[in-house]
Write a protein that binds this DNA or RNA. Structure first.
Lengths: 117, 117
DNA sequence: CTATCATATGAATAGATAATCATATGAACG
DNA sequence: CGTTCATATGATTATCTATTCATATGATAG
């Protein structure tokens, strides 16, 4: 009975600490963007250097239109930006959070590997 | 011509710095897991307290089977663990990377809000 | 201007995913 | 042992997503 009461108290704490549905949804949407190999590849590419669409297309080895679609998604999420250079649109990382987030993901994966050994 | 050469050099660097497809895929799969509101809600709940399935079900307000499905996904990814306590299965965060990753996502969102103001 | 190069957009489709309903498992207790 | 409580699993389905093909836009050079 005391145990049950503790659990209900825990539930209250959980409800209190839970962000609103809006924020949770935004957070989900943000991570969804990282949850695709093509987009991760684009981001990794931009870690090294600003690149135009054609270059990214060569790196990913897929249709140019597919790349443009993914670039739009990344740009809408403010993860990348673009500028014009002559005939080309050059894309770049818009801030270093992208690096940190992907870095944390990496750490999780590599530490798990160590753990498995 | 010099410009073109620079770009090709940049491409080489990008290819050199790019992780293998396997790792990129694992990374994508990891972030995919964070890319769902129900799972994020579960993780936030477990930030506060270890919880059994019934409690999580109450918090999320969805079918118990749906919760179990999502718990399985989280557990398979080693993001949570479980132990038996009497009749119940109690779930808990398996490590603090989860906190860091979600925290980074949060920061990105909130800093963007500041930026927009 | 108009042709062309670089990129973006739109429609269509195949594949993935998350929820639900129905049912199975499995420990605990009388 | 068999019933019940807590949870897991399987099948199904509606929705979402990433890609492709086809085409539009839009800047720039001739």
């Amino acid at each position: 009975m005391a145990n049950k009461h503790d659990h209900e108290h825990a539930l209250e704490e959980v409800f209190a600490g839970m962000p609103g549905d809006g924020l949770l949804c935004e957070l989900g949407d943000l991570f969804k963007i990282f949850g695709d190999t093509s987009r991760i590849k684009i981001l990794f590419s931009l870690f090294e250097s600003d690149l135009c669409v054609l270059e990214i297309t060569k790196i990913l080895g897929m249709e140019q239109s597919a790349v443009s679609h993914q670039l739009k998604i990344l740009k809408d999420a403010h993860l990348i930006g673009s500028r014009r250079e002559g005939k080309m649109n050059v894309y770049f990382l818009s801030d270093d959070h992208v690096r940190s987030i992907i870095g944390q993901g990496f750490e999780h994966l590599t530490e798990k590997e160590v753990h498995i050994q």
